[in-house]
Simulated scan of single mutants.
Amino acid sequence: MTVQAHSTMTDAEAAGRGRATAQPFAQVWTGGSEFELRTFDRPQLAPGESLIRLTAATVCGSDRHTVSGRRPGACPSVLGHEGVGIVEETRGDVPVGTRVVFSVTSVCGECRNCRRGLSAKCTSVRKVGHESAESEWALSGTYATHIHLPAGVAVVPVPDSLPDGVAATAGCAVATVMAMCEAAGDLQGHRVFVNGIGMLGLIAVGAALARGAAEVIAADPHADRRDLADRAGATETIEPGTELSDIDVALELSGAEAGVRSCIGSLGIGGTAVLAGSVTPGPTVSIDPEQMVRGWRTITGVHNFEPHHLAEAVEFLAADGAALPWEDILGGPIPLTDLTQEFAHPTRGLRTIVTP
């Protein structure tokens, strides 16, 4: 069934409906810095699908890039891909009433990439918070009271110990870092370099320590970000451009050309660089093949994640991740009706909590 938006709402009308509204509503991005609050028909669920009543979302930097014009996106659309909520209706396996987080990808499970365990690169992938509000998957994003999850979206229950704002980050930032750690291999006793201390970089510091890294060096140009890395347990924080060597694992989150060069150049014998920040076109970075061959060095990339990484993200947040400085990581909460203002004047913090 095609789910179409059919009316706009005032802020007062939205506030009056409350959390138990039968009819979903969402902030629809209509281009530039403009959002419009609209109501939606409840979707008729197909086998394997669920309707989640959202209790919180967090604002990812990639959505800020979409709104600012730095990244293309479907328009109009319901943005937002980090969220947590309660299963309100389902034709899937997770019972009604279960509190869950969900993957950013909807995948077919049948193409060559899916069969190889690379469902993140499914040949027919659709993404949470990236689909047109005028398509059959209109309620695809988390800046809404509800999100409609197709059968190809992984869903993971969340323990009661995890606050909503913390849990919401599992579905993008934290699961992506879990995928990076897997690509990096064993971190036990290793020397790890994390370049770029945004949300993913800070999680990477905590995750590397949780996996037994002997030393974690974090780089960022901003003093407040380096302070967060210190509080997350980093062995040392440095400014970009500081020369490093003999690094076992370098995790690159900035996407900056200089950051990529720094990570590759820092590798010691047998070292691995995992790149995840380079998600937009940028300058070409050259490598010395002899250096790679003689040094048994590896360069790999990670984009999105697999379902087991989402489960690992929840486990991390419920255990070692709880010690991260969440009081300064998370800003808000703000109501859904204040979303336009949030994009114009961001709340302090690496993630802003949005509540419907």
Rank of each mutant, 00 (worst) to 15 (best):
T66L: 15
S50L: 15
L45P: 10
T58K: 14
E49Q: 14
S33D: 06
V84R: 00
R71A: 07
A74M: 15
V59F: 15
Q44L: 14
E82T: 05
P43H: 02
R53V: 01
E36N: 00
S62K: 11
D41S: 09
F40S: 03
R70G: 06
L37P: 02
L45R: 08
P43L: 05
L37I: 03
G69L: 12
P47H: 06
L51V: 09
L79Q: 07
Q27H: 00
V78I: 13
L54R: 05
F40G: 03
L51F: 04
G69C: 09
V84P: 09
R70I: 00
R42N: 07
R70D: 13
E82Q: 06
T66W: 09
A56H: 08
V59H: 12
L79V: 04
A26H: 02
V28D: 08
I52K: 04
E34K: 09
R71E: 13
T58E: 03
A74K: 10
T55Q: 15
G69P: 09
L45G: 04
E36A: 02
S68E: 14
A56T: 03
P72W: 07
D63N: 14
P43F: 05
G32E: 07
G31W: 00
V28L: 11
V78H: 03
R53K: 14
V84M: 14
R42K: 13
C60T: 08
H65A: 14
R38K: 07
L51A: 14
E36T: 00
L37Y: 01
E34V: 01
S33R: 07
S62H: 03
R71L: 15
D41T: 03
G69K: 09
C75A: 03
F35L: 15
Q27M: 15
S33K: 04
P76K: 04
G80M: 15
E34C: 02
P43C: 06
F35G: 07
G73N: 04
A74W: 04
T55C: 12
A26M: 02
F40I: 07
S77F: 01
T55N: 06
L37V: 00
L51G: 11
G69D: 09
G73R: 09
G73C: 10
F35H: 09
G61T: 05
P76D: 08
